[in-house]
Structures are given as C-alpha cells and as structure tokens.
Amino acid sequence: MTEETGRYPLRLEGDGVPMVRFQKVTKRYGPLVVLDELDLDVAPGEMVTIIGPSGSGKTTVLRMLMTLETIDGGVIYVDGEPLTHMVRNQGLVPANSAHTRRMRSKIGMCFQHFNLFPHMTALGNCMEGPVQVLKLSRKEAEERSMELLEMVGMADKRDEHPSRLSGGQQQRVAIARALAMRPRIMLFDEVTSALDPEVISEVTSVIRRLVSTHNLTMLMVTHQMGFAREISDRVCFFFNGSIEEQGPPAELFEAPGRERTRQFLNAVLEAN
C-alpha cells in the first residue's frame, strides 16, 4: 500500500482545495470492479448529484466516503486530508481508528432505509451522537436536536418511536440526526427510494431548504431526475464504475453528450 500510494500527495494545500477529492479510487468485490480508478472533486458548498443505472457504483462512492466500505486503491481526500490513510514517515499508511474517527466527524449520511434506532424516540435518535460522541450535556444536546427537529417539521413527534412514524417522517428525523453532529459534508443515499410517492416531497423540501440555507457540501444519489435537475450544481452520470459524463444539470439533461447518458435518461423518462 505504502509503495503504491507513493505517488499521491500527503495533503492538499493552497487555494481551491476541494472539500472532497477521489483520486484514482478503486473498489473491488472479488473479481468485480465496482469503481475503476475514479477521479472526482467536489468543491466546498457544492451540491453534486450522482445518477446512473444500478450496479454502476454510485452508492459505493457515498459508502466509501462514510468509511462503511474499505478502499482497494487510490486515495480519498476530505478537506485536504486523506480519509482512510494517514501520514507516517513522509508516506501514506492505512489510517488508525483515531484518524478515521476524526475524519468521519466531518461527514454525515442519510440512508435509503432511514436506519433510525428503533428503541429510541425521535429526540433520542438526534441526541445520541451529540451526547455520546460530542459529549454535550443532555440539555445542550436536547436544544440542538429540538432546533433541528423543528427545521424538519418533526418537533411535535419528538417523543414518538420510529415504529409509529411514516417513512417520510422517519427520513426527516434521520436528516435531523445527521445534522445534529454538525457535519461539513452530507451524503444522501437514495433517501426517497423507499418512500411512498405522496410523501417524497416532505423529504425533498427539507433537502431543498438545506441547500438554500446551509453552506454544506452535499453528495446525493437519487433516481428523482426532476429533483436532481432542480437543486444540483452538477450532475455526474455513472456507468460501469466510472463517470461517463458530468456537467451542470441543464446541460446534462437537455443535451447529453454521450450515447449511454441519452439511453439512460430516455429509459428513466419512459419508466415515469
């Protein structure tokens, strides 16, 4: 690993350091190459949406950033520092858990199936990280959590357990839970895919508000093409583990330059 990572910078410095950089990142499951030497930069405050057919590696990008997946090649930089490596003797070596946890604290994630803690209330879910990880007092954690539950319109359900909430409500609590850790990067992994059509807008309107009022860097994987087009600064079309085409949403959706992009967009349009 050390030898192989010799050609990567130890950290990114100077003007215009991206909030996220994937540099020749590879991910394999056995013989299957999921990501093939991926290069991707995300600027601070940018909203990047990833679209593409299933199996194209788009969810893997988010899961690697959240350190839920290991990385088989290349380096990911977050805020200029390597995410899954650290600097030792002028080289990059696999990160220890202290480094990983420090880096992970910059990132929050929302999942397709919400993954709320079922034995805790909506408020309890939001307070868990601030109390256990950030070591806030219960009072401070509750204030911070209530502010966020307010923002996602779930303050009145603070004492309900997830089993008594609808999918849209659970996802909004999950967004508040992630934000309670004050991440600088938010990852949304198909957050509307498991929702009934009539509640999708509850969640998209929360994300829309985040985009307009927070200075978060966001990466989103979605099948909601209309939503992606409306709020993204940039859209990346993934195919077979690499970026086939990327650009501003108007450009990519109106005038895709690649045949595969056209085929994919047509297929999605037909399905709707």
Binding site: M66, L68, R104, I107, N115, F117
Partner: peptide, 26 residues
C-alpha cells in the same frame, strides 16, 4: 440489521458504545 451498525458509524459512535447503546438493547 446491518443498517443499525452503519447508522451508528455514521454518527461516529465508537464500537464499544455502538454495542452498548445500539446493538445490545436491540
């Protein structure tokens, strides 16, 4: 479910805390 571990990791809970607070109660 595996998703519970992933959610615990996403809010940066240390492994021991994830067992104690999230996994064992369930």
């Amino acid at each position: 479910p595996k998703g519970q571990w992933e959610a615990a990791r996403a809010i940066n809970l240390p492994t021991v805390t994830a067992y104690r607070r999230i996994v064992l109660p369930q």
